[in-house]
């Protein structure tokens, strides 16, 4: 029994440290703690208290030093904040720490990205089957999606949701497609 308790505690500790993702339930971005955080952004949870979580986001900084991107080519934004919140790191990277509602955190990658995944498959599988995102690079998706979207005529919000999904899970994206 004691052995099981120890195992449970280890599992709990590991899961507490696992990457979590911002889940905005279909919204593209949300104002939090004087910053704009984007859906699906991976965060490191530093501490929790009173239903709030202090989270750290790390990424590649833009030239103005106020937006963190997931990859070097700066195609997928993670968070936009005032410059004074940004801690500059090596290799053009930076990090931002913000306080968010715990309800915005999601441990399961697929659940966090569900709205984007649904938007892509709902919009892009009416006329043909869709290739999985990791089959193409971000650039290839820009090109392929750009060739086809005139037929689907997505709204600007749908367009951003789809592109964000394709770029994030692309062959050279920063997330592995679950």
């Amino acid at each position: 029994m004691r052995f099981l308790t120890i195992i449970s505690m280890v599992v709990w500790a590991l899961s507490a440290q696992a990457a979590q993702y911002i889940n905005l339930d279909g919204k593209l971005a949300l104002e939090v703690d004087n910053a704009t955080i984007y859906s699906g952004t991976p965060v490191e949870v530093l501490e929790n208290s009173d239903g709030k979580a202090k989270v750290k986001i790390t990424g590649f900084l833009n030239e103005d030093g106020d937006i963190l991107f997931a990859t070097k080519n700066k195609k997928v934004a993670l968070i936009k904040s005032s410059k004074d919140k940004v801690e500059a790191l090596d290799e053009g990277k930076g990090s931002v720490t913000v306080l968010v509602d715990e309800s915005l955190l999601e441990e399961d990658l697929e659940t966090a990205w569900d709205p984007n995944i649904d938007e892509f498959y709902n919009t892009c599988t009416q006329c043909h089957a869709a290739n999985e995102p990791h089959l193409h690079t971000m650039l290839e998706w820009d090109s392929l999606y750009g060739s086809m979207k005139e037929f689907a005529r997505p709204t600007p919000e749908q367009d951003e949701m789809i592109l964000r999904f394709l770029r994030s899970f692309a062959k050279d994206g920063f997330l592995a497609f679950p």
Binding site: T125, E132, A152
Partner: peptide
Amino acid sequence: GGFAQGRNRVGTS
């Protein structure tokens, strides 16, 4: 539009 096919979890085509 039409019906969305949804996600195909078989990775091979």
